[in-house]
């Protein structure tokens, strides 16, 4: 993979992302990735705790509209994440934890969609929420906590920052 990393790191775009002194380049992308995370994971957490039985007065079909928040957060983070990857391809792609994080995000999205299908047609009350949906919501909560830990620990577990520099 090293030749690919070397090529990406040498592109003007990658160099600009890494070396621009402007706060509106690298720091701003980090900010987008953080704010996106808060809404993406946060909306999932709110949805999960509601399915688990917290505040059953919230109509589930209305809360469904917060999937928009979830997807907005997801796309902000997909785009900002790709930009971070272009800036430092070696750093993430040589770290097994990065692939774990991507796998956990995929699992989290699958769980969210599955839970939404399970509670379809449920309006009020915990009684209406199928037991399976509640189990999945618990798994989903655990999954998002793991995503945050995996993402945050990336900075502490990388071995190579760039092709020819160590972390």
């Amino acid at each position: 993979m090293d030749p690919l990393f070397t090529w990406i790191e040498a592109t003007p775009f990658s160099t600009w992302l890494r070396d621009s002194p402007s706060l509106w380049v690298f720091p701003f992308i980090l900010i987008l990735h953080t704010v996106g995370l808060a809404f993406f994971v946060g909306a999932n957490v709110a949805w999960d705790v509601r399915v688990l039985g917290f505040s059953p007065a919230i109509p589930l079909d209305a809360l469904r509209r917060y999937f928009v928040v979830m997807w907005a957060g997801f796309w902000v983070n997909a785009v900002s994440g790709v930009l971070l990857l272009i800036a430092y391809p070696t750093k993430a792609l040589t770290n097994p934890l990065f692939y774990t994080k991507l796998g956990l995000i995929a699992l989290g999205i699958v769980l969210a969609l599955r839970i939404r299908r399970e509670v379809h047609g449920t309006a009020h009350g915990t009684a209406g929420v199928p037991a399976l949906a509640r189990t999945l919501a618990g798994a989903s909560l655990a999954c998002w906590i793991a995503v945050i830990f995996a993402g945050r620990l990336l900075a502490y577990t990388c071995t190579r920052l760039m092709v020819d520099t160590t972390c």
Binding site: A38, F39, V41, G42, A43, V45, A46, Y66, V69, W144
Partner: peptide, 10 residues
């Protein structure tokens, strides 16, 4: 932060 934004932000 996610717990805060997922509830207060929402």
């Amino acid at each position: 932060m996610s717990m805060l934004l997922g509830t207060v932000g929402v």
